[in-house]
């Protein structure tokens, strides 16, 4: 079991995303990585980009705080065709077990709605 907890659910561009990852696995992983990334969902094929990541001590269980740097964008937004979603994820290899927490990233700390999407 891997869980990611963030200090808050919304951030502004260029801030440091801070949180804690807690894990309890069946056996010690080869490696454990916390990643900050965005991805798209909607009409088009998914795009994804990992912005920042940090390695975690590969123990069978533990807890660790992290701080990851947000870039200027893209903002969290939703239109009719495209949604951009930000998240922090912790992945254990080789089992690929993971825990993820989504958050909003924008200047207003609210998801931008494009056009009539509501």
């Amino acid at each position: 079991m891997i869980s990611v907890m963030l200090e808050k659910k919304a951030w502004q561009p260029k801030q440091q995303v801070k949180g804690t990852v807690t894990w309890h696995l069946d056996k010690p992983p080869r490696d454990l990585v916390v990643r900050l990334f965005w991805y798209t969902q909607g009409r088009g094929t998914e795009d994804l980009e990992v912005i920042d990541q940090v390695g975690v001590e590969a123990a069978q269980q533990g807890q660790m705080s992290f701080s990851l740097q947000l870039p200027e964008g893209p903002y969290t937004f939703s239109g009719k065709l495209i949604s951009v979603i930000w998240a922090v994820e912790c992945v254990a290899r080789p089992s690929n077990e993971c825990g993820r927490e989504e958050f909003v990233m924008s200047p207003t700390e609210k998801e931008l709605m494009l056009g009539g999407a509501a």
Binding site: T40, D47, G79, T108, L112
Partner: peptide, 14 residues
């Protein structure tokens, strides 16, 4: 105000 700027990824663009 409050809209998304010009942005281009492999499959999705504003």
């Amino acid at each position: 105000d409050g809209t998304m700027y010009t942005w281009k990824a492999s499959n999705n663009k504003i």
